[in-house]
Design a protein around this nucleic acid. Structure first.
Length: 291
DNA sequence: AAGATTGTTGCTTA
DNA sequence: TTAAGCAACAATCT
């Protein structure tokens, strides 16, 4: 699942590829995922350039030379893949209709490709997604700024300070996992990094947030910073469908300490890692280490 | 073949 | 008003 480190990895890579290149083609295959009408996408993008790529939480914002923004969210199964050149698209139908195709690896476009942006140097940006929860839409600068405001404290930015973090943790009367997943409180964490952060800080995911002590919260704060930092270093985690802008998997998968390790031994104490449901999500933790 | 999977929204309830 | 909790969404895999 693309969370902060995965989306940021994609952002950094795309900055090196697509910036200031003239857009010479737009192809749309799914109006649910690529919102708004096709004519408008043509009008807003054709002949224009991306001047910057920004991110808040898991949301990407491509700044157009016109001042408008393309907002793009990958949700669970979205992919953004950039290809320097692509033979297939040059002729024939751009969208594949093959029934059996892998979501990771293989030629592009595939049957999960919903949007293709072509640049003047014969490079292409493919927006793929399997379960069609992802979206892309064009908004004004004002609407982008409005969207930004809905996000809470973000790890690895100046606003991620302990005082504010503890205020959030201390004021909420639901389990700590729900609080960490809530994008309007803490931005960018998803199921994987919440489980990992709680494991590192030895906190049971079911604990009431407001009853987490200041000392525990301090450790949690540090753990989030550490996990996100490491995951960025390893270019994210691939559990099922995530790939970076080059179609490559994330290496943090091999560094996971609890997520996806149910029934395996805890790396600290040897206890069997449990998998339960918390906040409606599959939750991995060590019942001996995490109290 | 029914059930699990997950990020976010939007509904219901308190 | 605000917050908490949960169903719904879509497609695939087990």
């Amino acid at each position: 699942m693309p969370e902060l480190p995965e989306v940021e990895t994609i952002r950094r890579d795309l900055l090196l590829g697509v910036l200031k290149k003239k857009i010479v083609g737009i192809k749309i295959n799914d109006s649910k995922v690529v919102r708004g009408d096709k004519k408008n996408w043509e009008k807003e993008l054709f002949g224009k350039q991306f001047l910057d790529i920004l991110r808040i939480g898991k949301l990407l914002a491509f700044k157009l030379s016109t001042g408008k923004y393309v907002l793009l969210h990958l949700r669970m199964t979205g992919q953004l893949i950039y290809k320097e050149e692509n033979k297939i698209i040059a002729g024939g139908h751009p969208f594949s209709k093959k029934s059996k195709e892998k979501a990771v690896g293989g030629e592009l476009p595939n049957k999960f490709t919903r949007l293709i942006i072509e640049f003047s140097d014969n490079s292409f940006l493919f927006f793929n997604n399997i379960r069609r929860f992802a979206y892309a839409k064009i908004v004004s600068e004002k609407d982008w700024l409005k969207e930004k405001k809905r996000f809470g404290l973000e790890p690895k930015t100046d606003n991620f300070v302990f005082k504010d973090f503890f205020k959030v943790i201390n004021s909420r009367k639901s389990n700590i996992k729900s609080v960490l997943l809530n994008q309007s409180l803490i931005a960018g964490l998803g199921n994987i990094y919440v489980d990992e952060s709680l494991f590192l800080s030895k906190i049971d995911p079911r604990r009431l947030s407001s009853e987490v002590s200041e000392k525990e919260a301090k450790l949690l704060f540090k753990s989030i910073d550490r996990v996100i930092g490491e995951a960025l270093k390893y270019r994210g985690t691939t559990f099922s469908d995530y790939v970076d802008s080059k179609g490559k998997r994330g290496d943090f998968f091999n560094k996971l300490k609890v997520y996806g390790r149910e029934n395996q031994e805890c790396l600290i104490c040897g206890e069997k890692i449990a998998k339960i449901r918390v906040a409606g999500r599959g939750t991995h933790f060590c019942s001996r280490c995490q109290k």
